[in-house]
C-alpha cells in the first residue's frame, strides 16, 4: 500500500526538516505511532499505537538524508509490517512557506497483524496521513496539536466520530485522557 500526502507550512524548510529529522518528534503528530526512540546516528526504534496492532515495534534506518530537502527511511530487519517513507521539503512560491510531500509504503502481511493494520487505515487510508500532516502543521505553526471539547485527544479525532458532545470535559474524562 502506498500513501501520499502534502501540506504547506509557513516556516522555512530548514526548520521543518530539522523537526522531522529528530524522528522522536513523529509521534506528536502521526496517529499510528506511540513512540520513536533514536538508537544511533541513522537508526531508530519505532513503536506503534495500540489500534495499529498491539505491541508492534520495529527498527528503522535513514537511507538518504539531504539537510533541508529530503529524508528517506525504511524498516530494518524482520519488521512485522515492512515499511518505508520519503519526505521532501520544497520552498513554496510565497517565499516564506515550505511544501511537505510525503510518501509512505507499507507491505501489509496476512494474519491478524495485517488485519489490524488494514482496519486501522480503513476505507480511505490516505485520510490518516492527511490528518497527520495537518497536525504537523499545527505543531510547527502554533506549537501544539489543537484540542476541542468534541475532539480533545488530538490524534484520535477522526476515529471518534460521532464525538463526545462539544461541552467541557469532566474530571474523570480528563484523568482518563491523560494516561492514554
Amino acid at each position: 500500500m502506498e500513501l501520499t500526502a502534502t501540506t504547506t507550512i509557513r516556516k522555512p524548510a530548514s526548520e521543518v526538516y530539522a523537526f522531522w529529522r529528530d524522528l522522536e518528534n513523529l509521534p506528536t503528530f502521526m496517529a499510528h505511532l506511540e513512540e520513536v526512540r533514536t538508537t544511533g546516528d541513522r537508526t531508530s526504534r519505532w513503536v506503534a499505537d495500540a489500534p495499529f496492532g498491539k505491541d508492534i515495534a520495529w527498527d528503522a534506518e535513514i537511507v538518504d538524508d539531504t539537510p533541508g530537502e529530503k529524508i528517506r527511511w525504511r524498516s530494518a530487519g524482520d519488521a512485522d509490517v515492512p515499511n518505508a517513507g520519503t519526505v521532501r521539503f520544497t520552498p513554496a512560491p510565497d517565499g516564506v512557506s515550505t511544501e511537505v510531500h510525503i510518501v509512505l509504503v507499507y507491505d501489509i502481511p496476512g494474519g491478524t497483524i495485517g488485519k489490524a493494520v488494514a482496519k486501522y487505515f480503513g476505507e480511505e487510508p490516505h485520510q490518516q496521513l492527511d490528518d497527520d500532516l495537518r497536525r504537523l502543521k499545527q505543531v510547527l505553526e502554533t506549537g501544539e496539536v489543537v484540542r476541542s471539547d468534541g475532539a480533545p485527544w488530538g490524534k484520535r479525532a477522526r476515529k471518534e466520530f460521532p464525538q463526545r458532545p462539544a461541552q467541557p470535559l469532566s474530571d474523570a474524562e480528563l484523568a482518563k485522557g491523560a494516561d492514554r
Binding site: T8, S97, D130, D131, R134, E141, T142, G150
Partner: peptide, 25 residues
Amino acid sequence: ACGACGACASELYSCCENTNPNAGI
C-alpha cells in the same frame, strides 16, 4: 484563528488552517 497560518497571514481568519480538529470532515 491561530494567527500564524497562511490564511491568518492574509487576514482570512474564518478560514484559519489550524484551528479545526475535524478539518478532514
